[in-house]
Amino acid sequence: MFKDSDNEEGREDVTEHGGRIRSFKHERGNWATYIYVPYQACDEFLDLLDELVSVAADHKVSMHKMSEFHISQSQTVVLRHHWINPFVQSLRDRLRSMSRFHCIADRIKVYTNQEKTRTFLGLEVTVGMEHLMEVVSDVDQSLQEFDLQTFYPDPSFHVSLAWCVGDAVGKLDGSCLKELQKALDRFENSETLTCFYAEEIRCKTGNKTFCIPFQ
């Protein structure tokens, strides 16, 4: 419906991204966009994260802590600049009746991106999945309206905690994963830290962030 054939290619310096590889070419006028539920980390949560990263380091995996925390509700897609406002309005219209809901993310899990160029340590959501799926369904409809790729068909909702370059699943799975889960379970106030309310979604497109509150 909202297709556009403009194809001005820009350049990208991969040294600016810590060696990470972008999964699509940067083109002038195109804005990398994703939708997510934010998680506000407190100091205790950051202390927990330090401990988990330390456990990974004991297993010879050096991980970089995330600078912000969220639950993804879309893949990263590309919006043309003049699509931004109508796309955000479409999200607002579809999510206007969504109520805030309770989530628990208390299961350590290891993920990679589709290209296997990065590995992530995450907290998988164990309570609240059905509500997150409702949000994804609405988000997907807005994405389809703009001929954009929808979310994964069977998503594992999670809060990404830390990452490293390459495929480190083999090192983090098994005994390391068990130690990571034990570190989480025995951490003081872990039950409180992994329990939160989803009160809004955010759409980040380029350097702009739009907040859509739930009721």
Rank of each mutant, 00 (worst) to 15 (best):
109 K>Y: 05
79 L>M: 07
87 F>I: 05
77 V>I: 13
81 H>F: 08
101 F>C: 05
106 D>P: 03
133 M>N: 15
63 M>R: 00
131 H>V: 00
121 L>P: 03
132 L>M: 11
106 D>Q: 02
157 F>M: 05
151 F>R: 02
72 S>W: 00
105 A>V: 07
158 H>Q: 06
126 T>N: 07
71 I>K: 02
147 D>C: 14
150 T>M: 09
121 L>Q: 09
73 Q>T: 12
96 R>Y: 09
126 T>P: 04
135 V>G: 13
91 L>Y: 07
117 T>V: 00
143 L>W: 02
63 M>Q: 03
67 S>V: 08
96 R>S: 15
113 N>W: 06
121 L>E: 04
53 V>W: 01
103 C>R: 05
88 V>E: 08
66 M>P: 00
102 H>W: 08
62 S>D: 11
114 Q>K: 13
112 T>S: 08
63 M>G: 01
138 D>K: 15
61 V>T: 11
92 R>I: 12
64 H>S: 14
68 E>S: 11
119 T>S: 10
63 M>W: 01
107 R>F: 00
143 L>C: 03
88 V>W: 02
72 S>L: 00
53 V>N: 07
88 V>Q: 12
127 V>R: 13
70 H>P: 06
90 S>M: 07
80 R>M: 09
129 M>Y: 06
116 K>T: 05
109 K>H: 04
118 R>Q: 08
76 T>E: 10
144 Q>Y: 06
122 G>Y: 04
82 H>M: 07
67 S>T: 14
100 R>H: 06
94 R>L: 15
143 L>H: 03
135 V>D: 05
116 K>F: 12
88 V>C: 12
124 E>L: 08
109 K>N: 08
80 R>P: 03
58 D>Q: 14
51 E>D: 11
147 D>I: 11
64 H>C: 06
159 V>R: 00
75 Q>Y: 03
89 Q>L: 15
114 Q>D: 13
104 I>E: 14
140 D>I: 10
132 L>D: 01
114 Q>A: 12
148 L>V: 03
79 L>T: 07
82 H>I: 06
149 Q>Y: 08
108 I>C: 02
80 R>Y: 11
95 L>G: 07
